[in-house]
Amino acid sequence: AVAEQLTPVLLDGPREESLQLVSELKDSSCSCAVDVGTVWWEAAGRRELRVVTASESTVSLWEPLAPDCWGKVYTWHLREVPVIQIVPLPDTCNLVCVALGELEIGEIRLLLHSSETDSSKHSLVKTGNIKAVVGLKDRRLVSSSRTMQEQQVEMVLLSETGGSKDRQSLMPPEETVTAFAEVEGMREALVGTTAGNSVVVWNLKTGQLLKKMHVGYSYPASICHRAYSDSGLLFVVLSHPLAKKSESCGSPAFRVVAFNPHTGQSTGVMFSCLPLSCAGRQGDVWDTAGAAVLTSGAVAVWDLLQGRCVAVLPPGPAGHWALARWATSGAGLLAGRRDGTVHLYRY
């Protein structure tokens, strides 16, 4: 039964109609987009979803003006250190979190703006050789950083005004943590992947490292995206940027692996493979949907529970897709080009 489950299920022709283009925004001043995301914003008693775009030296906030039209509200300029990524903070309002650095993340900053007072600021949350960062519900930010001697894993509780209210150290594993993922429905649990290809679990309240479980050598450099706890098992969505193609499974983009935290044993539950003759991927997961940019410049979308590729956005005449991110709260998929064009799709 397990072998049967591991057989990839790929549609011959992925249904593109599962993605509907809602609107397009174009940052004409952007020479090279590095990331795109969404943030909840509350102003004048109204809460709405806004789009955030980032280039190396600027981060811009966009508001919906009409159903298919976006206007730029504000641009923060960050000239000293290049922006590497936008760090989503689920359910947080009026705060944009960005990671900056050269090759690796060197600092994490919070960006604030008030249209009522027309004031803006950014505050430094963390500096160091930061290897991984994740934003969690309830304005919590967890990061791992490394010195020559030791690794530090820390959770920062952010204030509404962009400060750090509290800090909690988490017990670091011996291996470098490469990614974090929140566990759906378990506020105090956090999952991480390590450079040694293990999945680790923390208790965020006590800071304890609860378990280390090996992923397996067939999937080097696995990255965790999301986890769900159900019926005593921990289901972790992993992406495999470096996994090689195999005859039985094709090239895995995402895999759902069930771990028994009690025994440390694991088994693969579902594969989501690259469409035929596609290579390379850089992925993002929301709920049970995965999206990845392929080296061809296309964006592929998977239903991770069924292991099916459900949509492919081919590269258009205007250029290749370079970014694919899920909007917060299931509001859709954001696909971005390097020239600053962003398409928002309903999924």
């Binding site: 649990a189 208790n203 098992l233 771990f259 028994n260 935290p261 009690h262 025994t263 044993q265």
Partner: peptide, 23 residues
Amino acid sequence: CSESDLGPISLNWFEELTAEAPP
């Protein structure tokens, strides 16, 4: 997944591992 694949399953794994792990 069955118990034979993954060993005995505990619904309270998080609490049990918290009690067992070093503080």
